[in-house]
Simulated assay, not measured.
Amino acid sequence: MLPIKRPITALLIALLLSSCSVLKSTPQPPPAPKAQAVEINRAQSGSLPRIGSASVTVRGSPDDAIRALAARANQAGARYYQILLVNETVAPGLWYASAIFYGASEGNNSGALGTPR
């Protein structure tokens, strides 16, 4: 039985180590800010200041939960938001979602739209 354990152990270690690269992402610049908050991914959030977070629970569909988060981001004055989770609760048709809100980075001219810094 010992000879079978070694290949399985080696395979499990190889899979574990290769899965670590899935979590590492190459930094990317965020898109230009717009009048409404823009959804970004994790790789685009590295240079942005975090200004808050929010969670919503809405009845409807996953799209309704995403729209509710976008509205919350706009209310908070965020330029960008990153959705962390969209999940149906134990009640059918009731969706839970959460996001992180980001402001504009100091490096790009993205203060108030239309006004120079």
Rank of each mutant, 00 (worst) to 15 (best):
S110G: 14
G77P: 03
D63C: 08
A112H: 04
A14H: 07
S25M: 06
K5Y: 09
L17P: 02
A35P: 03
R67A: 10
A104K: 15
A104Q: 07
P33M: 01
L11T: 15
L17E: 01
D63M: 10
P49D: 01
G46N: 06
L11E: 12
I13Y: 02
G60L: 06
R117C: 05
A10Y: 07
C20S: 07
T57E: 15
Q82L: 14
F101C: 11
P7M: 00
L113E: 04
A65Q: 02
P7V: 08
Y80D: 07
R117V: 06
V86N: 10
R6Q: 05
A112D: 11
S47D: 14
L12S: 13
A71V: 11
E39Y: 03
G111D: 02
A97C: 08
A70C: 00
K34D: 08
A54D: 13
A35L: 10
P33E: 01
A65Y: 00
A68V: 00
A91H: 06
S98W: 06
P31W: 02
A99H: 01
A91R: 08
Q36T: 00
I100H: 01
D63A: 12
S53F: 06
L94E: 00
S98A: 12
R6L: 04
P29A: 08
A76I: 14
S18F: 04
T26E: 15
N74T: 02
A70M: 01
I51D: 03
S21L: 07
A10C: 07
A112C: 08
S55N: 09
R117W: 09
R59F: 04
A35F: 06
L94D: 00
E39Q: 08
L16P: 10
F101R: 05
L48N: 13
D63L: 08
G46F: 05
S19Y: 14
Y96V: 04
D63P: 03
V86K: 11
